[in-house]
Nucleic acid binder design. Sequence first.
DNA 1: TGTACATCAGTGAACGCGCGTTCACTGATGTAC
DNA 2: TGTACATCAGTGAACGCGCGTTCACTGATGTAC
Lengths: 209, 209
Amino acid sequence: LPAPPPARPTFHHGDLRSALIAAVGELIEVHGPDGFSVAEAARRAGVSSAAPYKHFRDRPEILRAVVAEAMDRLHAAMTAAAAGQTPGSPEQIAAVGHAYVDFARAGPGVFRLVFGLTEGHDEDPSLQAKGQACFDVVARAVAASLGQPVEADAVQRSAYVLWTCVHGHAFLTIDRKADVVATGFDDHSYLMAVARAVLERAAAGTVGG
Amino acid sequence: LPAPPPARPTFHHGDLRSALIAAVGELIEVHGPDGFSVAEAARRAGVSSAAPYKHFRDRPEILRAVVAEAMDRLHAAMTAAAAGQTPGSPEQIAAVGHAYVDFARAGPGVFRLVFGLTEGHDEDPSLQAKGQACFDVVARAVAASLGQPVEADAVQRSAYVLWTCVHGHAFLTIDRKADVVATGFDDHSYLMAVARAVLERAAAGTVGG
DNA sequence: TGTACATCAGTGAACGCGCGTTCACTGATGTAC
DNA sequence: TGTACATCAGTGAACGCGCGTTCACTGATGTAC
């Protein structure tokens, strides 16, 4: 018979909310975004299957908390990456992209969850704001490069193109679909190539239309 | 009590295999790639829950069949799109990209399944070949543009960059994450911008490194 | 410092549910003669 | 053309399973006096 979960030293857990979010994250890495169960997360946290309901209304609310926490981490990583480079340089764009790709690779399951379409997530204003904040990190770098305001069409378009490239690259690698490409295109050369291409074309005014 | 499933005119279904694949596809659009059940697919096909096991070993095998069928459709659509345009033109690249994006939008759930990481799919040589065939449609267009063989590094890299852009754009739109971008960037202008950018840079020999 | 008590975070048993899969079966099909 | 029979695609009942959630409960915490 299976060993009982490691008995907590105290009756109260201490920080069950965080422990559950972490446990769900781990389960999602193993079983995919839909493959986790409240019961198994509770087991991992060493707690009865009813305990989670003291902290979350239901299963979807737990999922939303996992997404929120992950988006905060992504935003922090992108911001830190941008801070370490010259504003507006291709190197800065590449560094932000690298943070994005690293985030995806470090937790592919959670990455898919964050960027997937989950009922109720797109209507949540706090999640929307976190997504916008991530995009703005890229947009600010592009704006600095072009010497135009962040809201300018050229800036928004170029930032979007960069986003699609990096997003696609992140997905294709975590989903192991990038192996078909015969040549060795490592993250750095890919990101620099894309950053230079978009910035130069934007500066020349040839993006969009 | 619920109405019984519409009685088939005959005891035998006729083409249960195809009917199940179609039913699973529809269910995936509603419930996501993990959200379908063999039982519900059987119900949709008007058949007992044991019937599917006459055609498929188990649940994963049904999924694999759905993926195979979808990849064939994607390849056909990309090939048809390429055939309608001048080989190597940006318009041809854009048209192939459009077929890709349309495929994603027509069945987002199945698209996520096809390009997601599902246990056993990457080891299936027949699925691998289908993926390669899709990539080659793009690579051939790029090769025609550059006047280089398909296997050339520059061709493979440029085709990969194109793939990431279009893949990222497809995902961001079906997952409703592209709305953050303030400006109206429709499919056509996006695809043409990306196609021109990549082809011109590749011709100038500035991709990669 | 000590005690009473409200609050809160846990427990564990129970529920109903739908699922994947197996089983012995039966009705329809098609082929050999 | 007619019949016997092997084959195959269905049926429907059954199984064991893990899940999400609720419930009445109890042990620990912290605050007011």
